[in-house]
Each structure stands twice: as structure tokens, then as C-alpha cells.
Amino acid sequence: MMPLRRFAIHRPADLGEAAEMLDHYGDTGTLYAGGTELLLAMRHDLLRYEHLIDIKAVAGLDSIEARDGHIHIGAGATHRTIERSPVVRELLPVMARMEAEVANVRVRAAGTLGGNLCFAEPHSDPATLLLALGGTARAQGKGGERTLAMDELLAGAYENSLSRDEVLTGVNVPVPGPTQRAAYLKFQVHERPLLGLALVLDLNEDGSEIRAARCAVGCVSPTPCRSEAAERLIAGPAAAAGERLQQAADTLADEAALTDDREGSAEYKRHLIGVLLRRAAGKCLDANE
């Protein structure tokens, strides 16, 4: 058995106190939510903290609601809560389906969206999808509240850009319009995905034309990767998208700066980006989906 080293747990009454605690404990402390990634890293001695600040003690951080054309998901909401949320299922089914496939049933019961994003594990499913959906992160610290784009929040592998006293409080995801379609596909060999790919298409009324696209690839670079050049390539007639999707995949693969690792070679990942992008587009364009 691998024991966890000793630490203390603190329960802030509100966000202000959480910010104070973060500031106070500095490098010896960190926020703790579901613990599904943090505690594994601590058990492997990859991270050591003497103080865990239990952000779940702050009330209201796990709410999910639709407001102003956005879904607001509290950082403390678990994967399971999001997967089961009627609001998410109705307005953002792609997110509910993605959450239903995160890790396993136990991780989904305990792990939180906020913890997942802040831990910034490069194989995160939610980060990739939220990047494509244009989600934004809300953070609050001693200096007040601010909003960050998803690619601003994710600074690198296992690295977020929040300042020492800031707490991620939630994400805002724009509700896709009636002409928008979204898909998230992943390819997995080991416990974590080898590649995740999210695609959002904006179609014309009869679905014959792709007016705009957003796509992101995850797991293959330190943070999920978007390419506006690739997205521009996807736009055009839906019927003849094949060639453009292949070019877009190559452009996205270039942007992701693929490398060889245990999950696969850069060449294979490049190929898979093409396969998954085409399959994702197929799902988006399929009227039955």
C-alpha cells in the first residue's frame, strides 16, 4: 500500500476566506475538490502539500443553471452531476455525453469539473470540448472576479494560469444556437484517452453549408489545441467537405506540434486527427444525430 503523506484540511467559509488561505499557505497549500487527480499525484509523491483547502466547503459552487444564453456550471459540480443535469442534457447534450464517458463511474461520482480544469491534465476530456464550445472560466481572488477564455486558463501540462489567491468558480458555456451542431469523439487505448476531438459546426438553414466551425484536439499537446486556420478551412459546402476536412486536420495537427510518446507516434496521431475530425463532422452533419 502507498500511504498518503500527512496534511491538514481547511474549510473556508466563503471565497474570500479561500483566497486568504491560498495566499497564506503559498506553495505548501492547494485547493482540493474531488481529489481524483490531486490525491493520486500526492500518493505518487509527484506533488506534496501540507495544507488542502476544501473548496467544497464554500456553498453554491456546484450549481448548474441556464441564464443569458449560457449554461453556468459551478466548478464544484461533479462529472456525474453534469452528466445527469436536465439543463445540460437539454441544452448541451454533447457535454452530457462527454461527461458520461470521463474515466469511470467512481471518478465521475467524486471528480469535479473545476478540479479537472485546474489540474490541467493534458488528457482532459472537458477541457477539449469546452475549448471548442467557446466556454469561459470564472475566477475570483482577492482582487475580485475575472473571466478567462479556456485557452487562457490552461497554461500548460498540469499548469493553470490562476494567480496564487484565485479560485476557479465555474465555467460559462454558450448554448449552441439552432443551427449549431457539436460532437466530441475520443480514441483510447490505455486508461486515459490517446486523442480527444471536439467539433462545433454552424450550418445554414437546410444544413447544406458549413458557415463556420470551431474544433479542438486534446491529449496530444500540453493543452488542448485550436487552429483558426483549420477552422476556416472547414467552412464551405457540406457535401464536399471531405477534402477540406483533411486539410483542416493537417493544419490542426501542425498547430498541435505532435510528438511521439507511449500513446503513439506523431504520425499516428496526425492520422487519427483526420479520422476523428471526419467522423465528428459526419455526426454533426447527420440529421439524425
Binding site: G35, T36, L39, L40, V105, R106, V107, A109, A110
Partner: peptide, 8 residues
């Protein structure tokens, strides 16, 4: 269900 080995 939770993983009691890593659940405080």
C-alpha cells in the same frame, strides 16, 4: 460508488 482507497 467511490474508490475508497483514494477517497478521504
Amino acid at each position: 460508488p467511490v474508490s475508497s482507497c483514494t477517497y478521504l
